[in-house]
């Protein structure tokens, strides 16, 4: 499980690095990026369960941004793995139960269960890639700023920032404790039940002691219960245009099966 902890730490570091590159997307107003992501997810999930080609057309958004920003596809594939596994489980149940034949455009007539399984997997993958794109191009404090602009309470945003700040510290601590345990108990899978309480309890006490130190540091710096999160940035014309552009694209993809049209054009050629 030390591997799991290390992976999470590496992923956090990767996001911090990519969101600080200074490229076009990273400079955009976070509110527009958050809104575009939410819009994308809503429209993606609104596709009916047999709509394979329509759903596939939504790959346009993440693929464009992946290409423009140079985001690592390998990391996305790793992140989507567990999600796809769960969705395939649901999909397999659908394949067994839903045997009605449905028309899937240029794909011909296929069992409904297979169609819904494919659509489910596509939706899951694309949803994960959309959130991946957001965090890879936006720093966490900017995401929180964007969330605040869409009326998420300040307390929750500050809670996320504090948690994110100390996540890597606590994860490193947990990894060190985990490694120390397994060096003393080689070949054992997980933490033995006799050590559950003391292992987590120690980690919790250390975490809360850190919280005390953090609080005292904040008090020494004049903290009186209020967090200042910077001045409001107005959305520039290009940022509004960015949002409207993707809104238009998503609406077109929702109403018109772009992937099917391309398929027909290619087959005619």
């Amino acid at each position: 499980m030390s591997h799991k902890l290390s992976e999470k730490i590496l992923l956090l570091n990767y996001f911090e690095k990519t969101s600080d590159q200074g490229t076009g997307m990273t400079k955009l107003n976070p509110t527009s990026k958050v809104l575009v992501t939410i819009l994308y997810l809503v429209i993606l999930m609104s596709f009916p369960k047999y709509e394979i080609l329509g759903t596939a057309g939504m790959v346009l958004y993440p693929s464009v941004l992946f290409a423009v920003e140079g985001i690592s596809l390998k990391r996305v594939v790793k992140s989507t793995g567990p999600v796809i596994a769960v969705l395939l489980l649901f999909g397999c149940v659908n394949i067994l139960i839903d045997r009605t034949m449905i028309s899937a455009g240029i794909l011909g007539t296929i069992p409904g269960g297979i169609a819904s399984c494919i659509t489910l997997s596509l939706k899951g993958t694309l949803a994960v890639t959309a959130s991946f794109v957001l965090v890879a191009t936006t720093k966490i404090d900017e995401i929180c700023y964007g969330l605040q602009r869409i009326r998420v309470p300040k307390v929750i945003c500050i809670q996320i920032l504090l948690m994110f700040r100390y996540l890597s510290v606590i994860l490193n601590e947990a990894e060190a404790m985990n490694e120390a345990y397994h060096l003393r108990a080689p070949g054992q899978r997980g933490i033995n039940k006799k050590a559950w309480g003391s292992f987590l309890g120690q980690l919790l006490i250390r975490s809360l002691e850190k919280a005390e130190i953090i609080y005292e540091s904040m008090m020494l710096r004049g903290f009186k219960g209020e967090f200042k999160t910077g001045t409001r940035q107005k959305m520039k014309k290009n940022e509004i245009a960015y949002f409207l552009f993707w809104l238009g694209v998503f609406l077109v993809l929702r109403t018109f099966s772009f992937a099917e049209w391309i398929g027909m054009v290619i087959s005619k050629v």
Binding site: I158, L162, Y166, I170, L204, L208, A211
Partner: peptide, 10 residues
């Protein structure tokens, strides 16, 4: 607030 942040990280 710092307690909540760190407890969340824990």
């Amino acid at each position: 607030l710092p307690m909540m942040g760190v407890a969340g990280a824990f």
